[in-house]
């Protein structure tokens, strides 16, 4: 089983040179730390920045420079700043190559639920609905099962939907899976020490899984 950093490291392997990428809050933000040095990507922040740099040193903290998680950040050389309307314009028009975000549930049709749990405090969807409605390529970072062992990879989402038929690939603590164009999950890789059977048991939605599915390779 992978920890959060393991999930982030595995997702970093999906990143290709030249991509413009939007990283969600949580595990997706960690992905930036594990992108190989020889790959040049530009990170988009929904609050109006292309070219997110590392966290600042204490003397460079600037309240006018934050990311979508409200964390203080820096800009890389060649950054560009813009308004929230322009930011979502480039998201909506499909200019962002890859979106990585967290989820509470994903269905075998690629539906995602990640913004609301009825009966609990509703904090809002932020930019998630805009991102999933328009992104060309969405990778979801999530735990395969909830704390009580219930699968989060379902036939149909039980929580309020964020977007329909949008998830392409999922990296969990147990596996890498893709959502098939006609519906259903396909197991691509197992996490170290996890068996195909364990993935089958932990996946409530339809799963296509060969017995010889390889174990993922992490550095």
């Amino acid at each position: 089983m992978l920890d959060k950093i393991g999930i982030a490291k595995r997702i970093a392997q999906e990143v290709r040179d030249g991509m413009y990428i939007n990283l969600g809050i949580g595990i997706p933000t960690l992905v930036a730390n594990y992108i190989p040095k020889d790959i040049h990507v530009i990170l988009q922040s929904e609050n109006g920045l292309l070219g997110i740099g590392p966290f600042p040193t204490e003397d460079k903290v600037d309240p006018d420079l934050i990311n979508a998680g409200k964390q203080t950040i820096t800009m890389v050389p060649g950054s560009a700043l813009f308004s929230s309307a322009e930011s979502f314009g480039m998201i909506r028009s499909g200019k962002v190559d890859l979106t990585i975000l967290g989820a509470m549930e994903v269905s075998e049709d690629g539906d995602i639920a990640n913004w609301k749990v009825p009966g609990k405090m509703v904090k809002g969807m932020g930019g998630a609905m805009d991102l999933v409605a328009s992104a060309k390529n969405i990778i979801v970072a999530m735990q395969h099962c909830s704390k009580d062992g219930a699968s989060k990879l379902l036939k149909k989402c039980t929580l309020p939907i964020t977007g329909l038929k949008c998830v392409k690939r999922i990296v969990t603590d147990m596996a890498v899976l893709e959502v098939l164009p006609g519906g259903g999950f396909r197991l691509l890789e197992r996490a170290p020490g996890v068996t195909v059977d364990q993935v089958r048991k932990a996946t409530a939605g339809r799963l296509e899984a060969h017995d010889d599915v390889p174990e993922m390779r992490l550095q």
Binding site: S87, I91, R92, G127, M129
Partner: peptide, 13 residues
């Protein structure tokens, strides 16, 4: 009233 962020930005625009 909760609104997707890009929709909020565009409605204001």
């Amino acid at each position: 009233e909760l609104i997707p962020q890009g929709t909020l930005a565009e409605r204001i625009r």
